[in-house]
Amino acid sequence: MKRVDHDLTDEQWGALRDAWGGCAYCGVTDVAMQRDCVQALSRGGRYTLDNIVPTCRSCNASKCNDEVTGWLRRKKLDERSFLLRHLEIRTALATRFPPPEPEATDEITSAG
């Protein structure tokens, strides 16, 4: 499996904060936002545009490395709204920040 790098840029982080307008989970707006991996690092997530959302300190600490949908349900937060908004923002930002072209690889062929 190809390794995914931690490639979130400062510009992308700023765009994510602007797009969400507050905590992606609870909606609070009057506190500093932290980067949270929707899929936790311990579960294979990475710091990438598709996997990071802005969160308040409280939500980030509470979610820890839990699976996001189960955590949202346990906290009685709106799972459906989060997932739809996450998709909407990811789609919108994908046009602004297209994924890099895959690098060409030289294939070695053996005659035989």
Rank of each mutant, 00 (worst) to 15 (best):
M1P: 15
K2T: 13
R3D: 15
V4F: 13
L8N: 01
T9N: 03
T9W: 02
D10R: 04
D10C: 02
E11H: 04
Q12F: 01
G14V: 13
G14L: 12
G14R: 13
L16K: 13
R17T: 12
D18Q: 14
D18E: 15
A19G: 14
W20L: 04
G21T: 07
G22M: 04
C23I: 03
C23D: 06
A24N: 07
C26H: 11
V28G: 03
T29S: 10
V31E: 14
A32Q: 12
M33I: 10
Q34E: 08
C37W: 05
V38A: 11
A40E: 03
A40Y: 00
G44D: 10
G45L: 07
G45Q: 05
L49D: 06
I52P: 10
I52L: 11
V53Y: 05
C56M: 06
S58G: 03
C59L: 05
N60D: 00
S62Q: 00
K63R: 04
C64I: 00
N65D: 04
N65M: 03
G70F: 01
W71C: 01
L72M: 09
L72W: 02
L72F: 04
K76W: 11
D78F: 05
D78M: 06
S81D: 13
L84R: 12
R85Q: 14
R85D: 08
H86L: 08
R96S: 14
P99S: 11
E101G: 15
P102Y: 06
E103R: 13
A104S: 11
D106P: 12
E107W: 07
T109S: 01
A111P: 14
